[in-house]
């Protein structure tokens, strides 16, 4: 079939007009991948097109780029999937990375984030002979995180990194969870406290699920971040607005069956955090004038007692 590619190019060695979009029309087998198409361009049409690729089997993580605005591993994305009727495929470099040339981006910031979370096993002591004895179940669970190939797609499309470069980011946080839940590691609490307290830590994720959507290996980084939040709370790391937010949410839903937005705002800021509370006032006042402030007395679901009972039962079962 005929494939139409529109590729974003960048040549740092040109002094002007160094960013442009280039069209390539090529003829390939319909079940070819987008990588096959790009290799075809490179080999037969334009040898100057720059991109990284190696394994062609979605295991090396080299060929991340944006296809129609969404980050993809192009070796596992088939042309017919995205452009069944021969629509134009817009190919651009990954987001949240500095571009080196064409589709090749600087991956050093990605790996700096990985290094930030102490990415290696830290046992207090090793067995003198043989292996650590741990359950297969505990290892099996880590397979999800181990599937990460560090391709950077989640970082590319992360909505927090777009506005905040200090965010540790989905890939590194997922990697962190791989050590937090490894029974052989003895720095669990230190790791959790770090991820909890650090600027750009677990509470800065907006739960937008971009990372879940684009991850080509089912790592679901956001879910790993949610696991970490739950665990951080469990070890008593509660001095965060994030904790107060989720705690207040739970209390509100459990008590009334519905969300109490006033209480949520105040409690998330922290009852004793005067400056944060004052910070909320301007918008609150305006909202009050417009008749838009959430009710001071929370609205309740009918039968809210039933939800209270459910919550109690679940707590007891734990």
């Amino acid at each position: 079939m005929e494939v139409k590619l529109k590729v974003k190019r960048f040549d740092p060695e040109k002094s002007k007009d160094n960013i442009w979009y280039q069209d390539y029309n090529i003829d390939i087998h319909p079940s070819s991948t987008i990588l096959d198409a790009l290799i075809n361009v490179r080999e037969e049409v334009d040898g100057t097109l720059g991109l990284r690729c190696a394994c062609r089997a979605s295991i090396c993580g080299s060929c991340g780029m944006k296809v129609n605005g969404q980050a993809k591993l192009v070796c596992k994305t088939r042309v017919e999937e995205i452009a069944p009727k021969g629509e134009i495929l817009l190919i651009e470099p990954m987001g949240n990375h500095t571009i080196i040339r064409d589709l090749i981006v600087d991956i050093s910031t990605f790996f700096a984030k990985i290094e930030q979370i102490t990415p290696y096993l830290q046992p207090d002591s090793e067995p003198e002979t043989g292996e650590f004895i741990v359950s297969n179940e505990s290892m099996d669970k880590l397979l999800t995180e181990m599937n990460c190939i560090m391709c950077g797609l989640c970082v590319s499309d992360c909505t927090v990194l777009e506005v905040d470069k200090t965010f540790i980011g989905p890939a590194a946080l997922a990697k962190a969870s791989r050590f937090v839940y490894d029974p052989r590691d003895d720095q669990t609490n230190q790791r959790l406290n770090y991820l909890n307290d650090e600027q750009g830590g677990i509470w800065d994720c907006t739960r937008c699920m971009q990372c879940v959507e684009v991850c080509p290996k089912g790592v679901s980084p956001m879910d790993r971040i949610m696991d970490l939040r739950e665990s951080a709370i469990e070890i008593g790391a509660k001095k965060t607005h994030g904790y107060h937010h989720t705690n207040s949410f739970e209390k509100s839903v459990t008590a009334n069956g519905r969300l109490d937005e006033t209480r949520l705002a105040i409690e998330s800021a922290g009852i004793f955090n005067i400056s944060r509370l004052i910070d909320l006032i301007p918008v609150g006042l305006k909202a009050l004038i417009r008749g838009k402030l959430p009710p001071l007395f929370p609205h309740k679901a009918e039968d809210n007692k039933k939800i209270q009972e459910l919550a109690k039962k679940i707590k007891e079962d734990k």
């Binding site: 290696y120 096993l121 043989g130 292996e131 004895i133 297969n136 290892m139 397979l143």
Partner: peptide, 20 residues
């Protein structure tokens, strides 16, 4: 292989918690 395990490889295991 055992050394790789001690470095952190999450090898599959048997019922006894040893490498499978």
């Amino acid at each position: 292989v055992l050394e790789l395990e001690r470095m952190g490889v999450i090898f599959s295991r048997g019922e006894d918690g040893k490498l499978g």
